[in-house]
Design a protein around this nucleic acid. Structure first.
Lengths: 203, 203
DNA sequence: ATCATTCTAGAACGCTCAATCTATTTGTAT
DNA sequence: ATACAAATAGATTGAGCGTTCTAGAATGAT
């Protein structure tokens, strides 16, 4: 090698995540990212081709962290534990949680789409998560996967827990204890897959 | 009067809502709004002081439409019907629903805060909705309102239904029939207020 | 010690945007 | 008809953005 880098790709990604978490996607300008790291703007381009490349890397890092948590639990057939695991996950790294859960990805890439290799990585992560959901459902029913079952599972394990966490993430408040209780009640109250009230079976 | 206006404030607001719904807050530039209406950019400033004024007006129009739907039902003590009413509301005007439910307000005003009179109108609308939630809860318990009860109510009537609708709004797909069933099961499964399992009462 | 390479450093460029400005058009009241 | 107020019309301005460019500094291999 030739010269030690003062600023790593991770530094820039972390800064981007923090900026988006605090002020929305528009707050993560190249200059703001550089300022936060203490680097000149030009140095960012030694690590990333463009702004959308940083944002895609930030999304991959955040979503990847979530996938590493949820996918094993889903494949093991433990949906309830997956939903509950979101609480400590959100508590451990609030900027990452706010980045991922509070802003639509579409808003990150409205100026320019992410470069090809990163876009593929994003799709791969989403496909992995989708497959894990399907594997989890298959364990509870007769093996066939219906759209309705997939929607229910994603709601119970992903969207509903996020909806429970969102107000507290927005308010920068700690996650209250009853959040976990609400998730548990949710899973107790809604049939997961297979036997659904009023459709295939009675009651 | 002196000259008939070709472009009303409503035209510009509708265009802004549609643009945000389609491509996120950044897509609603003054020039894009003007182009969509068929007006020159300067004409927008005869109706609105600034870009954030339009976006605030758009938010007020959308949230106001939602408040007019939910507040009476909440005050009448019909939370389940309020939650279910969101489905036809979202179906009737998709751009408005996408504008309001798919993007965090913080992303709308990250460049500049809304001007004072509009900011107050926004707060007033949110306060009205909050009061309606409290009134609804008070009918079910002994009159006292706890934070946990308020969180549960807002989740059941607002955030959870939105979480059910969100994937279908994002995909531009029609809202499937089982969405309503999921909301109904949700309300059947989670205690609304007052008697909560494991806290004040047993079972 | 020198070279090749990779980084820092930050000024500069081109572009788009919100907002302003000047000129023109239009409908109404006199 | 004419005057006037309010709107259209769109070029212009200045700021901020992403990106590029030029220069210099640092490091390991020769």
């Amino acid at each position: 090698m030739v010269r030690t880098a003062r600023f790593s790709a991770e530094h820039f990604v972390d800064a981007a995540i923090a900026l988006v978490a605090e002020g929305g996607p528009g707050a993560a300008t190249m200059q703001a990212i550089a300022r936060r790291v203490g680097a000149p703007t030009g140095s960012i381009y030694h690590r990333f081709d463009s702004r959308s490349a940083i944002l895609a890397a930030a999304w991959n890092a955040s979503y990847g962290s979530l996938a590493r948590l949820l996918v094993p639990l889903l494949q093991a057939g433990r949906p309830r534990e997956a939903a509950l695991a979101l609480i400590p996950w959100a508590g451990e790294d609030r900027p990452r949680a706010r980045f991922l859960l509070l802003h639509e990805p579409v808003a990150l890439f409205e100026d320019a789409p992410p470069p090809e290799p990163l876009r593929q990585a994003m799709e791969q992560l989403e496909a992995e998560m989708d497959q894990a959901f399907r594997a989890c459902i298959a364990r509870f029913g007769d093996g066939t996967i219906r759209d309705e079952d997939l929607s229910r599972a994603k709601f119970l394990i992903f969207d509903a827990p996020i909806a429970i966490l969102r107000p507290h993430l927005l308010a920068e408040a700690p996650i209250p204890a009853f959040a976990g209780q609400m998730m548990a009640e949710l899973h107790a109250g809604l049939p997961f897959a297979g036997a659904r009230a009023g459709t295939t079976h009675a009651a």
